[in-house]
Design a protein around this nucleic acid. Structure first.
Lengths: 187, 187
DNA sequence: GATTATATATACAGAATTGTCTATTTTAGG
DNA sequence: CCTAAAATAGACAATTCTGTATATATAATC
């Protein structure tokens, strides 16, 4: 991938998160990225296309990072599950955390027919499915139910942290996840 | 309050939720409300002012409704707490549910200095405090902690339902809340 | 060094945005 | 009925938005 394209993606990701997607014009993006609109429209056919690529990259980066952390941390499925929120906390409390792309995007594009909304919705589902596979590997009976509960905690905590940095929400989300996971393991 | 002002508030609430705040122009609002811009700007000094009033009304309506439901349903604090998510589910799954104002608003106005963001943040805090007072009345030791956990579940479930109607998230949020509340009561 | 792809600079069309101004019409109250 | 307030109609300024066109400059490649 061209370094300019990559630069535009990085800058757009940051601006979308800190100023909002609809409030960020392509003029601002190219100015901060140190390039021009002609170049942006060479790599992205439209602003919507740029938004979609930003979302994809953000999600892939996060999923890739999380999967690797969990895989290297433990082999035992139930332990992976219990460590899930440890890593999520690390991610959320890191200084360069700016929020979860698909959560904000779905709020800015509420129309279910919008491609941006659809991608957000799909990413949310993918994340839940990943947790579900962890729960399934740990032989939890209602793996999908637990996955949904944990993803609610996750999305709620991210939402809380987006609303107020340093809210400490993750600490309690972690505790809650432990209670829910241990309960499900005992079933 | 003038019926026209009220009508504008109702229409704006709906449009903001279904199309997004920044994507909804005042022209659209007045057209749907069947009035004119002059009238809108007579009652609201600016679009931002309208957004703030929409948020206030939405929050007051919800809080008022929830408080009344809980007060008439039960006198015992611990039972109130346990019924909390029953009513929230009722609210979320009602056909005219369009999402929680402050959740979407905080996503569209991520800048912490924005008045809209600040109001959203405050409303989120108020809601959590209300749950905290219920937990406190039920003699729960770490009432604030439980309140935070329950509000995470709440915000996560609303987020999930905003992303995909009929997700069934509330059903599992309710189960999770029961586990967390009973655990906290036993402490 | 000449050629070719890549990026820049800049202007601009066309639409949409918020907010205002003036003039007219409708509605209510005495 | 007549007056005063409330609402409408519609144009319009000023800005901002996405996306494009054209011409110039910078790199890299043969």
């Amino acid at each position: 991938m061209s370094t300019l394209k990559s630069k535009i993606l990085v800058v757009a990701t940051d601006l979308f998160q800190t100023r909002g997607i609809n409030s960020t014009g392509v003029d601002t993006i190219v100015a901060v990225a140190g390039t021009t609109k002609m170049t942006l429209y060479k790599y992205f056919v439209s602003k919507e296309n740029l938004i979609l690529e930003v979302l994809k990259k953000g999600h892939d980066d996060f999923q890739g990072w999380l999967t690797e952390q969990l895989n290297t941390s433990s082999k035992k499925p139930s332990e992976k599950l219990l460590k899930l929120f440890e890593f999520i906390e690390e991610w959320v409390t890191s200084p360069n955390f700016r929020g979860m792309g698909f959560i904000k995007a779905s709020a800015e594009f509420p129309n279910e027919e919008s491609p941006v909304h659809q991608l957000s919705s799909e990413q949310s589902r993918e994340f839940r499915q990943y947790i579900g596979s962890l729960a399934s590997d740990a032989n939890i009976k209602d793996a999908e139910g637990l996955a949904l509960q944990l993803s609610l905690l996750f999305e709620g905590a991210v939402q809380a942290e987006q609303m107020k940095r340093g809210s400490g929400a993750m600490k309690y989300a972690k505790k809650a996840s432990k209670i829910l996971i241990e309960g499900a393991l005992a079933d």
